[in-house]
Structure formats: structure tokens, C-alpha cells
């Protein structure tokens, strides 16, 4: 059963003829070529597929397309190019927050989501905000440093 689903993807009005039960994750990766959204577990445990849906952090693996109708989806590809991304990128680089990189786009989305709600988060708030994003390489603390650095540098931008 194919349905027409209208939504905004990375700022662009998008119409897809798609099965409404297909996972947003698969649609982004397979139909839209947005492979910055990763599948680490497919069970909402790892956060590698984190995207923003109507500005709110969500696991794309848990979203059937039927629920996306009329919504706005932003992936890492949509964030790249913004001033906020530039600050996050520089901070992640300088804090050493990236190793294997598989969790990185999802981490950036979690950081973006946090800073939008709370531009000056405390350490515990950052830990909470990225707690659904597993990273097996860094032990998290350098990611924490990166978010703190971004908050400082991006003062007023979020």
C-alpha cells in the first residue's frame, strides 16, 4: 500500500509515494540518499539515527512514515551549512569528540536539540541530553567538552 506523504525535509517541501509503515530511517537512507543518518541498532537504543522532527529530537528508526505527514524533518545534512553547525563542528573537532564517527551525526543532532532548548547547559544536563546516544569510542567526556565549548562560542546563536 503506497501513500503520498507530504513533509518538509531539510527545508524542502517533499512529496513521496511511500508505504506509510516504512521506517523514516529507511526512507532517509534509501529513498532520499541521506546516509548521514546511521542505523546502529534499529531499536531506539543507540541514537545513531537521531533527527529532528518538528524541532524535537527523535530516533528515525522508531518512526513510521505515516506519522511524518505534514511534519518537518531535519537530518545532519540539513544542519550542515548553518552557523550553528559551524560552531558545533569546530567544537567537536577541537574537543576531540569524534573517533569512529558512527555516532557523530546523531550526537550533533542531540547537541543541537539541547542547545535550542537550553543554550547554556550544565554538565549534568548535557549528560542527560546525550544519554540516548551511545558512543563506544570516546567515553563521552570529550563530547561533553565539545557541547560546553559550543555553548560558550555560540552564545546568543541558539
Amino acid at each position: 500500500m503506497i501513500k503520498e506523504i507530504n513533509f518538509k525535509l531539510n527545508g524542502k517541501e517533499t512529496i513521496l509515494e511511500i508505504h506509510p509503515l516504512k521506517r523514516l530511517l529507511d526512507v532517509l537512507r534509501e529513498d532520499c540518499g541521506l546516509t548521514g543518518v546511521k542505523e546502529g541498532c534499529g531499536e531506539g537504543e543507540c541514537g545513531a539515527c537521531s533527527v529532528l522532527i518538528d524541532g524535537i529530537l527523535a530516533n528515525a528508526c522508531l518512526y513510521p512514515m505515516g506519522k511524518i505527514q505534514g511534519k518537518e524533518v531535519v537530518t545532519i545534512e540539513g544542519l550542515v551549512g548553518t552557523d550553528r553547525y559551524a560552531i558545533l563542528k569546530e567544537s567537536f573537532e577541537q574537543a576531540g569528540a569524534v573517533q569512529c564517527g558512527f555516532c557523530s551525526p546523531g550526537m550533533i543532532m542531540a547537541a543541537e536539540s539541547l542547545l535550542r532548548r537550553n543554550p547554556h547547559p550544565l554538565e549534568q544536563q548535557i549528560r542527560e541530553a546525550i544519554s540516548g546516544n551511545l558512543c563506544r569510542c570516546t567515553g563521552y567526556n570529550m563530547i561533553l567538552d565539545a557541547v560546553q565549548m559550543a555553548a560558550k562560542r555560540g552564545d546568543g546563536i541558539w
Partner: peptide
């Protein structure tokens, strides 16, 4: 120094096998 692979990994353009 800046990591060699950091930009593409952050942007999501690094090509893993599943990509």
C-alpha cells in the same frame, strides 16, 4: 592537530559499508 577524518564524519558524508 585536527583529525584527518573529522569533517566528513561529522557531516555524515564518510562512507561506511552500509552507505
Amino acid at each position: 592537530v585536527k583529525r584527518a577524518d573529522v569533517s566528513e564524519k561529522l557531516m555524515g558524508t564518510a562512507c561506511y559499508i552500509g552507505d
